[in-house]
């Protein structure tokens, strides 16, 4: 049996909100260590890897491994019915045909209970070995989100160029072009505002702006985003959870 209680529904609300526009069907794998998901978008360009460790829950138990096949839009409809500050408990039997979601208001005696039918989802699984990266950028997630939104107004592609101490986001469109340069910066008082660049080799990669604009839906989850890049390889965008992560692997674009 699975029983996982979040102190606040807000965490799962943000996670589902970040995923639902990229993937429609997901298997949520529940083990004694927590809940994990690997899901790929229909175009097979963007992969989501989610890990909500047991430590993200106030109470967590999962006696046997359980797979919950969930339709994200349906899950989102139910999740939206709960308040962000509600306690949220996920309950499923050992061989479940439904996931129960219980929202409890902390101030009042109000309990809302929902049942979501499970689906049998046949998904293939991509084997991602430990990747080596040439460059790692830690920067404020809100700043990264603004850059992705701004650059998408110009072009469907966004070029990321990293040299010693700066990251250049470059966009070349039909009616014009634009770029934003971010430099390493340490804010001792507000560490979440800092930009850290770790570079082994210079990077020049191009990504689809559409996918980046799906990734930035994770911005409410974490004040910083970590971007890991390697020449001619998929990039990794990571948002840390209190205990766990939401990662996106994005395949690059290449010259014709």
């Amino acid at each position: 049996m699975l029983e996982g209680k979040f102190d606040e529904a807000s965490l799962l609300k943000k996670v589902i909100d970040a995923m639902k526009d990229s993937v429609k069907l997901c298997n949520f794998n529940c083990t004694e260590n927590g809940i994990s998901v690997q899901a790929i978008d229909d175009s097979r360009v963007l992969l989501i890897s989610l890990l909500i460790e047991a430590g993200s829950f106030e109470d967590y138990r999962c006696d046997r491994n359980i797979v919950l096949g969930l339709e994200m839009e349906s899950l989102n409809k139910i999740i939206k019915n709960g308040n962000a500050s509600d306690m949220l408990t996920l309950v499923a039997e050992d061989s479940p045909d439904a996931l129960n979601l219980i929202f409890e208001d902390k101030r009042r005696d109000r309990i809302a209970e929902y049942s979501l039918k499970l689906m049998d989802i046949d998904q293939d699984f991509l084997k991602i070995e430990d990747m080596k990266f040439d460059a790692v950028v830690n920067m404020p997630s809100a700043e990264f989100a603004k850059i992705c939104r701004d650059m998408k107004t110009l072009s469907e592609s966004l070029q990321i160029i990293i040299t010693k101490d700066s990251v250049k986001f470059n966009s070349e469109g039909d009616f014009g072009s634009g770029s934003v340069v971010i430099k390493s910066f340490t804010d001792l008082e507000k560490t979440e505002e800092s930009v850290r660049i770790t570079l082994e080799k210079p990077i020049n990669l191009t990504f689809g702006a559409k996918y980046l604009n799906d990734i930035i839906k994770s911005t409410p989850l974490a004040s910083q985003v970590t971007i890991k890049l390697c020449d001619k390889q998929p990039a990794l965008f990571e948002y840390q959870l209190p205990s766990g992560y939401l990662r996106f692997y994005l395949a690059p674009k290449f010259e014709d």
Binding site: I40, S43, R44, V45, L46, L47, D124, F125, L126, K127, I128, S155, E156, S157, E172, T206, G208, Q233, P234, Y249, A251, P252, K253, F254, E255, D256
Partner: peptide, 14 residues
């Protein structure tokens, strides 16, 4: 503006 690659080109399917 460039050819979009897919993740299957980089990661094997299990």
């Amino acid at each position: 503006d460039g050819l979009q690659s897919t993740l299957g080109e980089f990661f094997p399917t299990e």
